[in-house]
Computed example of a mutant assay.
Amino acid sequence: MIEHLVTSGTFSLDGGTWEVDNNVWIVGDDREVVLIDPAHDADAVAAQVADRRVTAIVCTHAHDDHVNQAPELSQRFGAPVLLNPDEAPLWELTHPDRLPDEELRDGQVLSVAGTELRVLVTPGHSPGSTCLHAPELGVVFTGDTLFRGGPGATGRSWSSFDDIIASIRGTLLALPAETTVHTGHGESTTIGAEAPHLEEWIARGC
């Protein structure tokens, strides 16, 4: 079971602040779930979870619009916050007095309700940006690494265009073409729909 919730708030970095809508993804069943990037509105996320057990709160990266409610939800549900350690500089901007609980490492497998989520570390949008691939469900949760229409932004601190292209080319486009891509913002897509456009993205440097 995959559930989708959109929450709204702001993203701030490098002295700028922007209004954003974020995709919150919930994977599990009627007993237990994993929360992926539960942003902005802890009450809305908690209402969606209801009385189910939260086994983990997974942050695909540590930009504030993806982690601002992670500690609050961790306290509410008694669930650990998981984040790649290379995201530490960004995490500390939002939560200087509270560390994540566990590290996300490439190749790690998280299990919830009989479903395996495979950790794919895909640096570029940020140093430790991470995707979650659920082969049995035919989906990958890409955070801000890959969107419908192109890669995530790399024009801000702690980002790299070359790295994100390498991550998409070497990791995400290696997944089956029919894999559904559930993104951090905006509409979902598929690997097959995005793969033909890689060289176009490189040519225009976006």
Rank of each mutant, 00 (worst) to 15 (best):
V181N: 01
L132D: 05
G184I: 01
G16K: 15
G124I: 02
D106T: 00
L117Q: 01
L13K: 15
T60Q: 13
R204I: 13
P123K: 01
S188E: 04
L175C: 02
T94P: 04
E103D: 14
V112R: 04
V24F: 07
D64W: 10
L117T: 00
V6R: 13
V58L: 12
F141A: 05
G186I: 12
D21N: 12
E136I: 01
V49D: 04
H197R: 09
F161R: 10
I202F: 13
E3W: 15
H133G: 01
V112I: 10
V49F: 02
S129L: 10
V34E: 00
S157R: 11
A174D: 14
R118P: 05
W25F: 15
T190N: 10
G149C: 11
R148T: 13
M1L: 11
V181A: 05
R52I: 01
A42V: 06
H197T: 15
P100N: 02
F77S: 04
P100R: 00
E72P: 04
R156A: 13
L13S: 14
V81I: 13
G9L: 09
R204E: 10
R118S: 04
I2S: 06
T130F: 05
A88P: 03
I191V: 14
E3A: 14
E102M: 09
A113E: 08
E87Y: 10
I26K: 00
I168F: 04
V34R: 03
H66P: 03
R105F: 15
A177M: 14
V67N: 00
C131L: 05
T17P: 12
I164Y: 07
I202S: 04
D65Y: 07
F161Y: 06
A113P: 06
H63P: 08
E103L: 12
I202W: 11
A113L: 03
C59Q: 01
C131M: 08
G28V: 10
I191D: 06
D144A: 00
P89H: 12
T145I: 12
P38T: 02
L104D: 07
D65R: 09
V121F: 09
T179C: 09
E116H: 06
G28D: 06
I191G: 00
H182Q: 15
L73A: 06
W91V: 08
D101Y: 03
E32L: 08
R148Y: 15
R156I: 11
L173Q: 08
G152V: 09
H61A: 02
S74V: 06
